[in-house]
């Protein structure tokens, strides 16, 4: 496969994982602009393990992802007490704290970044994508799927029927952290070089944009969003240096024209009548 195409597909796979991570949290009616922080934790922890401690890649990915999930639990406890704009800002602050922490943290290269990681293949990225997709679909069809819908739709009514809203939000936050952490670990061992700037606020924002524009109602929307908006800047290459402008205009326009995203549940139901239960 040619190198250019492979690079685009790898970035797309990582973006799909990031979109799934954003969606995990959005499904509980909370929007996180800090998932790049989780990604950074997964990237740096796994990179430290493989480069400095000589670990194999797979256990390093597992530990990197788990570290991000654990931080998710820890940070989620206080941050999830915040609502609305405050929650958004709290997660944003978290992401920036993580980024600036790694900017200064010498054992993982500080401002110079880190190199020496390798081993992520395209296949590996898409195995993770497929695995998480299957998990999302299975959870969506489980009882937990309704529970998540219920608490997303009406927090107070959900509590009134005994749903443990706070616990589920915390777990969803950590689950999002796990996925972003794994995305980060894969990214680090694909990109060969990482620096704290790779995990800035725009990465978190993009992850959420993928989900919202693709369609927040179904997991397929997140995937569609990540695919389209990973390919779009490439498709706009004929615009040369103007392509990010075009990208911005298209995003703003789409938000106005399809605020509910490209793919909706109703559409999916129509497309696939055989779906007993929406994913």
């Amino acid at each position: 496969m040619n190198i250019y195409l492979e690079g685009v597909l790898a970035a797309m796979g990582i973006n799909i994982l990031l979109a799934l991570s954003a969606r995990a949290i959005l499904a509980t009616d909370r929007l996180s602009l800090g998932n790049a922080g989780f990604m950074a934790i997964g990237a740096y922890v796994s990179a430290y393990l493989t480069v400095s401690l000589g670990w194999d890649l797979y256990p390093a990915i597992a530990v990197g992802g788990s570290a991000a999930a654990a931080i998710g639990l820890l940070v989620g406890l206080p941050v999830l007490r915040l609502q609305g704009i405050y929650f958004v800002m709290g997660t944003l602050a978290f992401g920036e704290v993580v980024r600036t922490f790694f900017q200064n943290f010498e054992p993982t290269g500080g401002a110079y970044g880190m190199r020496g990681m390798f081993g992520t293949t395209l296949t590996m990225i898409y195995v993770f994508v497929a695995a998480f997709l299957v998990l999302f679909l299975a959870l969506g069809r489980s009882r937990l799927g309704y529970v998540a819908d219920a608490l997303h739709d009406d927090d107070e009514a959900a509590r009134s029927i005994g749903i443990n809203v706070d616990l589920l939000r915390l777990l969803a936050f950590a689950w999002g952290g796990l996925i972003a952490g794994i995305a980060g670990a894969l990214f680090a061992h694909y990109a060969l070089y990482i620096e704290s700037g790779n995990f800035n606020f725009l990465v978190s924002a993009n992850a959420v944009l993928f989900v919202i524009l693709g369609g927040v109602q179904t997991v397929w929307g997140a995937i569609l969003g990540a695919v389209i908006f990973s390919l779009l800047p490439e498709g706009l290459r004929f615009l040369a240096d103007w392509r990010l402008s075009a990208y911005g205009v298209i995003l703003v326009g789409l938000m106005i024209l399809r605020p509910e995203g490209i793919l909706t549940r109703a559409m999916l139901r129509r497309l696939a009548g055989f779906f007993v239960r929406k994913p």
Binding site: G84, L202, V208, G248, V252, P259
Partner: peptide
């Protein structure tokens, strides 16, 4: 409130790119 917030991020990308031009 989330939708306009995300839209403004996209608008920011646009402005950065225009100025870079």
């Amino acid at each position: 409130f989330l939708s306009p917030m995300l839209s403004t991020i996209a608008f920011g990308i646009l402005l950065q790119n225009l100025v870079s031009q």
